[in-house]
Each structure stands twice: as structure tokens, then as C-alpha cells.
Computed example of a mutant assay.
Amino acid sequence: MTIIAERFQKIMEIAPSQETAQLLQLLSDDYLDLPRAISSQQYIWQHKDLGFLGLKWAQGDMQRSFLEHEAQFIRARQHPVFPEFVDIKHHGKTSVLITRWFEGVSLAQLSKEKRAITFDWLALLEQSLVYCHQHGFNHGDIKPANILIGKDQVKLINFNNVIKHGECYQQQALHQNSGFASLEALSAEGVAKPQQDWYSLAVTLIASQQTHPAYMANQARFDTNSNACVPTKYLQIIRQEYKRVLKHA
């Protein structure tokens, strides 16, 4: 067996499909060793010149369109808190988005492990949201799994749901998480507005403190004493949304 054939065989063992393995094989000359799977859709791989990179793959027309959507956004709008775009590659019906690797732990994982969570990174995350909104877009999928906390840094990831302000949710084939998305996004009614991202961030911060509210939960759940670590302005966002929902119920 040749070295190339042997490498392809090893890649096949970790790739989710033959087409993905073929794409990884085409890239392999620029990388060291083998890619390492870190989730069902992502690899980490050491590039010969660029160091460790993250590779996020998608298959099928819809998933590839989401990935291309994300790639276009982060390629055009670089921010220290956003993933750093490197490239996007295609092979058959498989695409791979390549970004600089960020060593961090998701807010969801920190919360699951019941580790102490401080919000010293929150100002940076807020700045990135303001930047996103100033360019006329909502991130559209803010939740604990999409916030990575590293040493003196934070990353907001997964921009496949990014949506322009003023666009109707009904026209967007987006994936929404019922625990964190705004009511407009969940119901596919209304248009995208910045306050919907801020609402999702508010719910995310509360969720990280193990006090995740349901949309119609009692207002007592949002008491500032029981969520002392969460900045008051975010508790106020939750209360305002709760009142708005009751008003239109």
C-alpha cells in the first residue's frame, strides 16, 4: 500500500462519508498528521504554515447553503470575537469551512459541569454584537453552545443563521433553538431586529447560571437576587419580553 493510499485509509476511518474523506485527502498535502474529529461536524487539523485550523463540514444542498452563508459573512466582516476565516473548499456535495482554531470551552459545557462562570468576557462579546448590528445583521443563533471561553478571549461562533435586519423570518430557512431564540424567530413571523439578539443573549446568560427560564415562566424566576451574577440590564430585557408576550397573548 502506498503512503497516499495508507493516509486515505486512515482518513476514511474518521470521516463521516467517502466524499468527506476524499475532500480531506485533497487537502492533506498542506497538513501534518491526520485531522482529529472534535464533534460530528468539525475537525481540528494542523496546517504546515498556519498552525491549527478548524474544519467544519456540511453535506447536502441545504446544509451547504448554511455553511456558505456563514463563510460569506465572516469572510467579509472580520472581528476579534468572530471566527477568523481562512478558506472554504468544495468537493461533490460536500463543503468544508476552514477557520483559525480557537482553544476554548463552550458556555454550555461550563454550565453542564457546574463550573463557576464569571462574565469578565461579556464586554468583548457585547462589542462584537454591536459590530454585527452596525453592519445590519443579527447573529440569529446566540446560545451557550455558540459562545467559547478561552484565556483572556471569547469567541462567538456558528454564523449560519445570520440574517439581515428587516428581513422576514418567514423567508429564511433557518435552524432555531426554542430555548434561546426570540418569539419572532421561533414563529417565523415579523422581521429581524437587534433586540432579538440581545434577548437571546439575556436568556443565555441566565441559562449559564442554571436558572434557565421558559418563555412563559413566572416573573419570580427573573428576580435579581436569584440571578445576582447576571447584569441587571439583561434581567430587564427578559422582563420586558415577558410583558410583551403577555400583552399580545
Rank of each mutant, 00 (worst) to 15 (best):
106 S>Q: 06
111 S>N: 15
227 N>C: 03
82 F>I: 00
106 S>W: 02
115 R>M: 10
137 F>T: 04
56 K>F: 00
53 L>F: 01
86 V>Y: 07
187 S>C: 11
206 I>L: 09
43 Y>F: 15
125 L>Y: 01
85 F>C: 01
73 F>M: 05
6 E>P: 03
71 A>G: 10
110 L>A: 02
88 I>H: 01
182 S>L: 00
231 P>K: 00
9 Q>W: 02
222 F>D: 11
194 P>S: 03
20 T>C: 15
101 W>N: 05
200 S>G: 04
195 Q>F: 08
58 A>C: 01
139 H>F: 02
46 Q>P: 01
238 I>G: 04
19 E>P: 00
160 N>M: 08
135 H>G: 08
220 A>K: 14
193 K>A: 12
195 Q>T: 08
63 Q>I: 00
153 Q>D: 13
179 G>S: 14
14 I>V: 13
218 N>H: 12
161 N>V: 04
178 S>R: 14
210 Q>K: 13
240 Q>K: 12
237 I>N: 00
213 P>E: 02
50 L>N: 14
51 G>K: 04
79 H>K: 05
79 H>E: 04
119 F>L: 09
45 W>P: 01
26 L>D: 10
81 V>M: 01
172 Q>F: 11
235 L>S: 02
42 Q>C: 12
144 P>I: 03
131 Y>M: 05
50 L>A: 11
236 Q>D: 11
71 A>P: 05
13 E>G: 10
150 G>E: 08
116 A>M: 11
191 V>F: 07
128 S>D: 01
173 A>Y: 11
7 R>Y: 01
162 V>R: 12
49 D>K: 14
110 L>Y: 06
197 D>I: 03
125 L>E: 04
115 R>K: 14
17 S>K: 04
131 Y>D: 14
107 L>W: 00
210 Q>S: 15
140 G>Q: 04
193 K>I: 09
53 L>G: 05
239 R>S: 08
212 H>A: 15
181 A>Y: 02
139 H>N: 10
161 N>G: 11
231 P>F: 01
154 V>T: 07
12 M>T: 11
163 I>R: 14
27 L>W: 02
155 K>E: 05
70 E>F: 00
93 K>S: 14
182 S>K: 07
17 S>A: 05
182 S>I: 08
83 P>I: 06
147 I>G: 05
225 N>M: 09
173 A>V: 11
221 R>I: 12
110 L>H: 09
35 P>R: 09
37 A>V: 07
166 G>K: 07
165 H>T: 05
13 E>W: 01
145 A>K: 14
173 A>E: 15
239 R>A: 09
46 Q>A: 11
47 H>A: 00
87 D>W: 00
57 W>S: 10
158 N>H: 11
245 V>D: 03
122 L>E: 07
90 H>I: 06
184 E>N: 15
28 S>K: 00
21 A>K: 08
53 L>T: 12
176 Q>Y: 14
94 T>E: 08
188 A>M: 13
94 T>A: 09
235 L>T: 01
105 V>Y: 03
113 E>T: 10
244 R>L: 05
136 G>R: 06
174 L>G: 13
28 S>V: 02
238 I>C: 13
95 S>E: 04
46 Q>R: 15
131 Y>F: 15
133 H>N: 08
208 S>M: 07
67 L>F: 02
70 E>V: 07
93 K>V: 03
130 V>S: 05
241 E>V: 04
240 Q>E: 13
43 Y>D: 03
